[in-house]
Design a protein around this nucleic acid. Structure first.
Length: 428
DNA sequence: AAGCTCGGCAACCGCAATATG
DNA sequence: TCATATTGCGGTTGCCGAGCT
C-alpha cells in the first residue's frame, strides 16, 4: 500500500522562525543533508512540519541565495521572463541565479507589478490598458485591427512558443532513445505527437489567460489548429484564419527580445546568434502572418520556418545537432534562452546552425531591421500578395515596438540603479 | 507621542504532479 | 494499478516596521 501517514500537524509550531530554529535546521542539513523533509524535523529536534522546514531552507537558509535589492538587470530579466512565461515563478527563478521564486514573486507583486500598472501597462498581458478603450471608442478599421493585433500578439506568441517548446522536448526525448530519429518517418511521428502536446499546452495557457482557444486534436494531418471562438479575435491557427488574425505582434515581441539581447550583450564579439534568433523570429512572424505556413523547431535550438501554400501542416526540419540528447529541462532551458537571445545559457544549443536551405533566415539582412526582414521574406516566399498588409504591419509593428521600449525605459527611469552603473544602458 | 495606514516580506495554504509501496 | 506520501508551485495571509496625521 502507500506510505505511512504524513506527520500530524498537532503540536507543531507555525509562524516566524527563531534564530535558534534556523541554527538547528542549518546544523542538521549541513551535517546530514535534508534527505527526507518529512523525517527531518524530528531528527533535527524541530517542532515544525517538514514542509515548513523545506520552505525555510529553500527560501531563506540555503547558502546559495542572494538577498537584498534587485539590480536593474534582474528587474529587466524578470519583466522579460514574466512577459514570456507569466506567473511561472519557479521557471523565472531558474533564469535568475541565486534568487528564489518566492522572492521574485514578492518583488513582482510589490514593485514591478505596481510600476507597470502606474505606467498604464497591464502587468498580466504587458499591454497598454487602454487598448480595449481604443477599440470601443474609435471603431475605425485601423484601431480595431491594432487592438486586435495587440490582443492576439501574446496569443500567437504563446502558441508558437509552446509549440516550439513541445517540439524541443519531444525531440530531445526521441533523440535520447534513438539515433535514427532523423528519418522522415520519425519526424512525421514526432510532429504528430508534438502537436498534441502543444495543443495541451495551449489549452492550459488559454485557460490561465482567460482566452478561449479551441484546439482541434483530431486533425489527421497533425495540424495544430487553434480557432478563435466567437467574440474572440484571437486565433493562432495555421489555417482557418480570418482577416483580423493578421497581427504584427510576433515581430514586435521578437524585436523586443532582439533589442534586449543587443543591449545586454553589446560587448560580445559575436552577436550573430542573437541576430540569428531574431531573424528567425521575424521570419517566424512572417510565417504566422501567412495563413498557410509551417514552423518547425528542431532540436538543439535550431528553429526553422518554412512557408507553404498548402493548408496548415506542421512540418519538422529535423536537423541533428552536435550536442546530443538532452532532457526536457535542458530543452526548455535552451529554448527560453533562445528566446532571450542568451547565447551563454543556450551555448549547448547549436542554434548557429541556421544556414541550411530549409531555413529562411538570412543574416545579411540584419542591418535592415525587422520590418525589412519581414517584407523581404513575405515577398520572396509568400506569393499571395500581401503588400498592403505588410505596410500596415510595419506601421503597427513600430508602435508595438515602441510599446515594449516604453515599458522598459519607464521601468528604467523609475527605478534608478542601486549601483549607478547603468546610465549607459538605454533599456532598448 | 499615539494611532493609523500602507508596503514589504516571510510563511502558510491548498492544489497538482510525481514518487513510491 | 491504485492509494497514499512527498514534493513543488503559485496564491494568499498576516506580521512588522516605516511613514504619515
Amino acid at each position: 500500500m502507500g506510505r505511512s501517514p504524513c506527520c500530524d500537524k498537532v503540536g507543531l509550531k507555525k509562524g516566524p522562525w527563531t534564530p535558534e530554529e534556523d541554527q538547528m535546521l542549518l546544523a542538521y542539513i549541513e551535517e546530514h543533508g535534508h534527505g527526507s523533509w518529512r523525517a527531518l524535523p524530528s531528527k533535527a529536534g524541530l517542532q515544525r512540519c517538514g514542509k515548513s522546514c523545506r520552505l525555510r531552507w529553500t527560501n531563506y537558509l540555503r547558502p546559495d541565495i542572494k538577498r537584498g535589492k534587485f539590480s536593474l538587470q534582474e528587474e529587466q530579466t524578470i519583466i522579460q521572463l514574466h512577459a514570456l512565461l507569466g506567473n511561472r515563478w519557479s521557471a523565472i527563478a531558474t533564469h535568475l541565479q541565486k534568487r528564489t521564486d518566492n522572492e521574485i514573486k514578492n518583488y513582482w507583486n510589490t514593485h514591478l507589478k505596481k510600476r507597470l500598472t502606474k505606467m498604464g501597462i497591464d502587468p498580466v498581458t504587458h499591454k497598454p490598458k487602454n487598448d480595449a478603450l481604443l477599440t470601443t471608442q474609435a471603431g475605425s478599421n485601423y484601431s480595431s485591427s491594432k487592438s486586435a493585433a495587440n490582443l492576439s500578439h501574446m496569443a500567437q506568441w504563446e502558441s508558437a512558443r509552446l509549440e516550439a517548446e513541445a517540439r524541443l522536448v519531444r525531440q530531445s526525448k526521441l533523440r535520447s532513445h534513438s539515433l535514427l530519429a532523423a528519418t522522415s518517418a520519425a519526424a512525421a511521428q514526432l510532429a504528430t505527437r508534438s502537436s498534441s502536446a502543444a495543443a495541451t499546452s495551449i489549452k492550459s495557457w488559454s485557460a490561465s489567460s482567460s482566452i478561449n482557444v479551441h484546439v482541434d486534436l483530431e486533425s489527421p494531418t497533425s495540424t495544430l489548429s487553434t480557432t478563435a471562438l466567437p467574440g474572440n479575435p484571437i486565433s493562432s491557427s495555421s489555417h482557418d484564419h480570418h482577416e483580423d488574425d493578421r497581427s504584427p505582434s510576433i515581430p514586435h515581441m521578437f524585436e523586443f527580445i532582439k533589442d534586449i539581447s543587443h543591449h545586454h550583450r553589446h560587448d560580445h564579439d559575436d552577436e550573430s546568434d542573437d541576430w540569428t534568433v531574431c531573424q528567425l523570429a521575424a521570419d517566424h512572424h512572417s510565417a504566422i502572418n501567412d495563413h498557410h505556413n509551417h514552423i518547425a523547431v528542431a532540436s538543439g535550438g535550431t528553429i526553422s520556418c518554412c512557408s507553404s501554400m498548402e493548408a496548415g501542416e506542421w512540418t519538422l526540419n529535423n536537423k541533428e545537432s552536435s550536442n546530443g540528447g538532452g532532457d526536457d529541462d535542458v530543452a526548455e532551458e535552451g529554448f527560453i534562452s533562445l528566446l532571450l537571445c542568451d547565447s551563454t545559457a543556450a551555448a549547448g544549443g547549436d542554434h548557429q546552425e541556421h544556414g541550411s536551405s530549409s531555413e529562411v533566415n538570412n543574416n545579411s539582412e540584419i542591418s535592415g531591421g525587422g520590418n525589412e526582414k519581414n517584407s523581404n521574406k513575405d515577398s520572396s516566399e509568400n506569393n499571395s500578395g500581401s503588400t498592403m498588409t505588410t505596410t500596415n504591419e510595419q506601421h503597427e509593428y513600430c508602435e508595438d515596438k515602441n510599446y515594449w521600449n516604453s515599458i522598459l525605459n519607464l521601468v528604467d527611469t523609475s527605478s534608478p540603479s542601486p549601483h549607478g552603473d547603468d546610465t549607459d544602458t538605454p533599456m532598448f
